[in-house]
Amino acid sequence: MKKPFPLRLKLILETLNNLHDGSELHGIMQVNVMLKLVQWVLLVLSWIALPAFSAPMAIPALISPVTDLTQTLSPQSQQSLAQKLNQLSKEKGSQIAVLIVDTTQPEDIAQFGIRVAEAWKIGRDKQDDGVIIIVAKADRKMRIEVGYGLEGAIPDLTAKRVISETMAPRFRQGDFEGGLNAAIDQLTALIAGEALPAPQKQSSQSGGLLEWLPILMFVAIFTGMVLRSIFGTYAGSALNGGALSVLVWVLGGALLTVGLVFIAAFIFTLAMGGNRGGGYGGYPTGYGGGYGGGGLSGRDIFSGGGGDFGGGGASGDW
């Protein structure tokens, strides 16, 4: 069973409610009757599926390197931790993920941990260089799950020490962010000592190009000005578009992106206009918008790379 039953139930009910809201086709009475009927069926179904409720906890989907189901971390600290972990994933290739849950009952945190590891697959495929930090707040337990490839860099002993000497004292004072932050720093330092292959360029393709965006913008402005003054408005714009799309292509952009860049740069250079002052004033807004959008779509996607775990690491409490 991939999706836990209660979750699916909720999903179905939500869909039904949406249907209810936008019911132009049916009369409200009809929809109500239908809704009642479906609710009845679902109720009966939930009796049948009742044993599923005592089944182990569902693993949350991996969207960000920091998953906090308890709202323990403030949005800011969650973001700063996530940024740090995204950075590691980008620069070293190894991945660390944090999961804070209320409880892992009825499972032991180690059993839960290996299930999370198998579901998330943190770390790269062959390197298996992923680490998952799990905190069960109500159980007052934590675990560091270490991927196969990092069992040398982070032996069980070291993981245990990070837990008992770095995390536990801070957690006892309620400083979850500080504990996690320090643990992440220690683990990152340990991983840095391990000789691992550099991250592949392909995996960070979109993020990489978006990183170049501000530089590309400036290049576009300057080459645009030069080319326009030499070749005239239209030829200069076209040349500028061509030059930029070649640059993007060299940087590893997909063909579609290259095409879009050509068109964008062409229009951009055309729009620069004869009036230098006015044209210049237009750029900052374009720049800001492009960068912000890039930040959203390129940076914040975090997913496991297929790393395997074998139960290495350590558990502890506070």
Binding site: I114, P155, D156, K160, G311, G313, A314, S315
Partner: peptide, 18 residues
């Protein structure tokens, strides 16, 4: 002893997973 304990715990967990 504490080190050995941590190692034993980790190994028992690996045994369970394997």
């Amino acid at each position: 002893f504490r080190d050995l304990q941590a190692q034993l715990e980790g190994t028992e967990n690996r045994v369970t997973v394997a």
